[in-house]
Design a protein around this nucleic acid. Structure first.
Lengths: 158, 158
DNA sequence: CGCAATTCAATTGCGCACAACTCAGTGGCG
DNA sequence: CGCCACTGAGTTGTGCGCAATTGAATTGCG
């Protein structure tokens, strides 16, 4: 249980809350917009790109593992993977050992796309306009806040 | 135009990109999850809460102004405002001076909801588990990166 | 004045996020 | 062995975000 910092007026707290949620929302969508442009000619959306990153790094994976890495459930992944499959980038096969599990793997086209996608990170980092140290600090703050939010026990406002 | 920092291997840049986009995505959804719980009993989603915040602060506003504040277009706001209207929280009326414009205002129920929503910021800040200075730093980084991303000229990867 | 360009809201279509549910396959336990 | 709880993927329904388009109202310019 986290205690609140004393000495700040309610008004200031309210403002900070609004600023945090506004700015996080805005940043998230600004990133999305840049990724959308970067990925346009690759035929990938941003979430699809995240899935491809995981597959490029780790090879064949069951849907379950992909979901764990990206914090996505089957309700999001199932249709997304079907789109990647019909785009010819990905294979999906029932596992032989466990027929409940579906293994996702790259097609040759999916693997080949990695070359072109190699340009993406460099361009994205350049577009942020921040030095690498600041980006590292940002990442560190985001991870801390995410961990805290995930473990926080939150009650609905009555 | 921002130059890339020298002395970092491509591999490290790639990793940082992945870490940044992973962690921003995760943070955004972690916030969303906490807000979802906090707002459940108020009958508001997180974007609806943002709209209500704007109205609570500024009173009646045309759709256009709300969109400017929240960086949302009519494609998002129109259905959202209709849901707030059918929930009885908001009025929508064509402006008399300019018949193209629709002015959005609070109903008595919408205004009354502000009382209960007053608990939200406090609880959210507590759930982040970060001291206020860190949150301010986070906000500052997010705003800088958003500004840079918005003004960046980005070309699709060929 | 009259026509063209612009503005504002709404609508349509697509993809993602999440909750709730279904259904088949698996594994444990009596 | 047979039953039952659990697991993994998929489906459905709701809401958001964005691009593209529509249609009405307004503005500007010749």
């Amino acid at each position: 249980m986290t205690t609140l910092p004393p000495g700040l007026a309610d008004e200031e707290l309210l403002r900070l809350d609004q600023q945090i949620c506004f700015s996080l929302n805005a940043a998230s969508r600004a990133f999305g917009g840049v990724y959308r442009v970067l990925l346009r000619d690759l035929g990938l959306t941003y979430p699809q790109y995240l899935v491809m990153l995981v597959l490029w790094e780790s090879g064949d994976l069951p849907v379950k593992r992909i979901g764990e890495r990206l914090r996505l459930d089957s309700g999001t992944l199932s249709p997304l993977l079907k789109r990647l499959e019909s785009a010819g980038l990905v294979r999906r096969e029932r596992s032989a050992e466990d027929e409940r599990s579906v293994t996702v793997g790259l097609t040759p086209e999916g693997s080949a796309l990695r070359e072109r996608a190699g340009q993406v990170p460099r361009r994205l980092l350049a577009a942020t306009g921040l030095p690498v140290e600041d980006l590292a600090a940002l990442r560190e703050l985001l991870e801390r806040v995410t961990g805290a939010l995930d473990s926080a026990v939150v009650e609905p406002v009555p």
